[in-house]
Amino acid sequence: MKIICFVKLVPDVENFKYDYERNVLVRENVHQILNPEDCSALSVALKLKQENIDVQVETLTMGPEGCRPHLEDLIKRGVDRSILISDKSYVGSDTYVTSRIISRYLEREAFDWIFSGTHSIDGGTAHVPSQVAECLNIPQMGNILRINQAGLFSDRVRTEVDSEDAVLQFEIERPAILSFQYSTKIKLPYIKYEDLERDVSGQLEIVSNSRLRFCDTETGIAGSPTKVSQVEVDSFGRKDTRFLKCDDEGIEEVYQFLKQRGIVCS
């Protein structure tokens, strides 16, 4: 059984830099992390692989070549093969074009299941998995909490899906895209000390436009139907600042402030 896992590298939002003079996020040299929900999905796949020798796990990433060390780490954690779709002409593609690019790669690939996260922490639109499913004409399910793993080996898998006020069950037929929610219960395996320096470059493949063959007008900003008319960045400028002492009075004031906003209850 072959599972392809979507893995996106996203900026570490806890560690971003903000340029207060230009009022923009500084994207250069920002520490990148694996999108947490993608990690959860990949962790499920790798656990399955650990328990079943005939499971093959591949990752699929679209991004700059700078993603390499992170993808090599995934191979060292047990991924069989890692694909990086990377081409200068793809920079600036919106979710629709990104989905088309990913789908074109997948059209010629054999797989049983695709795993992904539901959202990414930088975009958060949840578009890509469902759009890829649409392009490939296969079903997709988002917000998955759990799956009945045995089902993956048959033609149907049962999923438990978070729908805010209830947990619903759905069955999906193979092949399909299963998009998971973040879970703290399952983690990626560690990289073994002996594997840290292992050369895994042979298991990492870079796919560029020379293989996928889009024309210039189909990708990047030019090819993207989403037009950004204006970006409004939340200003981090100083709000009314009040200084409180760390005494009973100060604590009471903070408590009342939070209470008024419903952040704490009495």
Binding site: Y190, I191, Y193
Partner: peptide, 13 residues
């Protein structure tokens, strides 16, 4: 740093 190795290897990594 993000710790991606086993806890016993953290120091040397």
């Amino acid at each position: 740093y993000s710790i991606n190795c086993a806890p016993e290897d953290e120091m040397r990594v």
